[in-house]
Design a binder for these strands. Structure first.
Length: 270
DNA sequence: ATGGTCGACTCTCGA
């Protein structure tokens, strides 16, 4: 199937960690005009709600929901279709305000969408890493409720986990990194096993499918020193309708780039 | 070799 065929009559959902939404409008504008994806899931908006660029999305024809805070974290979903049943964070006993700016749950066109910015974890001996591992268990509990139903479920975002050795540029060197350590890989995979399929891997089994290139590594993109830490996943009912997935390096190559790329899943809904 | 560069916001943190 060629790209033109894929782009016609398909439902497109993209995940993109912007690393400050206000600093990326020069990227989002041409990208949304060119791609017109149905849903854009955004992480690291780094903006308080009263300062969120609502008008920017309205002018592009997108509905928008969001929750953020100053400097850190923040999630948003933009959509060409109405966004329904919006909620933030976990509804569990461990609930904190931090969850609310990391997890956005909503429904678009009958598809349940979960957009997550998973805690990074700092270092494997830091309490933040334990918190990260716990976060995946809490997600699993959330999914056990949702996935018991018969509908379409999509989970995407910056998971801060490269699940397999082929998902990082230097697996031996990165064994103790919080985004590749064996415990976090297992925690992520355990949550995925609750009932999700990795849509990028379904169509791209080859190595080197990186979604993130560190600013601090000079020439990381051209040297292919990346990580696959952003993911698009679907439950079995929705995965059956998937027809492709693509990483767009464009946003990583533009002036004042984000350190993440835009990752899109394509579906033929009917 | 244990760096490097961003963004927000304060002189530092988080990634």
């Amino acid at each position: 199937m060629n790209l033109t065929e894929i782009q016609q009559n398909t439902f497109k959902i993209t995940t993109f960690n912007v690393n400050s939404i206000r600093a990326r409008l020069h990227i989002l504008k041409p990208w949304l005009e060119a791609n017109r994806v149905d849903v854009l899931c955004i992480q690291e908006t780094k903006v308080q709600d009263h300062e969120f660029p609502v008008k920017f999305f309205a002018e592009l024809g997108y509905a928008i929901v969001f929750r953020g805070q100053k400097s850190y974290n923040g999630v948003a979903v933009a959509s060409l279709h109405p966004i329904e049943d919006v909620s933030f964070g976990f509804d569990d006993e461990e609930h904190t305000g931090d969850d609310d700016v990391r997890l956005l749950h909503c429904t678009v066109n009958g598809i349940k969408l979960i957009n997550t910015y998973v805690p990074q974890g700092k270092s494997i001996d830091d309490p933040a890493y334990r918190y990260k591992l716990r976060w995946f268990q809490r997600l699993k509990a959330l999914f056990s409720e949702i996935l018991g139903q018969n509908g379409l479920v999509f989970w995407c975002g910056d998971m801060n986990v490269a699940p397999e050795p082929e998902d990082v540029h230097s697996p031996e060197k990165l064994a103790d990194h919080v985004c590749f350590h064996i415990d976090v890989r297992n925690a992520f995979k355990d949550t995925v096993a609750a009932g999700f399929e990795d849509i990028l891997r379904k169509f791209h089994p080859e190595p080197g499918q990186y979604t993130f290139f560190d600013y601090r590594m000079p020439g990381s993109v051209t040297k292919k020193k990346g990580w696959r830490i952003d993911h698009v996943l679907a439950n079995k009912h929705l995965a059956r309708l998937a027809i492709g997935a693509e990483i767009d390096l464009g946003p990583r190559l533009m002036e004042k780039p984000s350190d993440h790329t835009a990752l899109t899943a394509f579906f033929k809904l009917h």
